[in-house]
């Protein structure tokens, strides 16, 4: 059990990183990773919501299957995620204001982060168990955190030094930077621990 969880988590963080291998969560990845602190905040918020959503949606999925309403999966999941985000936001604002101040502004953006819905849908597709789902969600979130932080680090360095051609300035060079990071991450492909 433990080894299974470790292997699922490591593969979701490195080998099957949501951004560098599964094409999920790229919009916030490109949009937010302007500076390091924002990136870390966003990554932490995503990790948090993702693990929570994985847990809740596992029960919702069970419920829908029992009721014979499996075709409403997508609709139900997105509603769960949206309300979860809302709920987390309210809870944090009231009870842990310091955490709210650092994560709060990123929370509304997470509803439309396809990494969260993607993780939940993948869990449902795989038919994984409860703990496996939660760990997969958390690990995928950590993978997102790793990717977005690395990207922000590299971009910060490039802001100091790079002098790219006019037409590559801005978005294109960031995308190419992301491509090069993805190339480096290719080393983790197919990595299996066990």
């Amino acid at each position: 059990m433990l080894s299974r969880i470790v292997s699922v988590s490591l593969s979701a963080i490195l080998a099957e990183n949501f951004i560098f291998s599964r094409f999920l969560g790229i919009c916030p990845f490109v949009g937010v990773a302007g500076c390091r602190d924002t990136a870390v905040g966003m990554g932490l918020a995503v990790t948090f919501v993702m693990s929570l959503a994985s847990a809740v949606c596992w029960w919702v999925d069970r419920l829908l299957t029992a009721l014979g309403l499996a075709y409403l999966q997508t609709l139900a999941f997105i509603l769960v995620i949206a309300s979860l985000v809302q709920f987390v936001e309210m809870f944090l604002r009231k009870n842990i204001p310091s955490l709210y101040r650092s994560l709060g502004i990123y929370l509304p953006l997470i509803t439309t982060n396809c990494a969260v819905l993607g993780a939940v849908l993948l869990n449902a597709q795989e038919g994984s168990g409860f703990f496996e789902s939660v760990f997969f969600g958390a690990a995928a979130g950590l993978g997102f955190l790793l990717a977005i932080t690395l990207f922000a680090e590299v971009r910060e360095r490039l802001d100091y030094s790079a002098e790219c051609p006019k037409c590559f300035e801005g978005t294109p060079i960031s995308l190419i930077t992301a491509a090069l990071i993805a190339l480096a991450f290719m080393g983790f492909r197919g990595m299996k621990i066990l």
Binding site: V154, R157, L158, S161, A162, E163, C164, P165, F168, I173, I176, T177, L180, A184
Partner: peptide
């Protein structure tokens, strides 16, 4: 693309 020698990060 990053400006030549000294600017590349890989």
């Amino acid at each position: 693309l990053y400006g030549g020698l000294g600017k590349n990060f890989l």
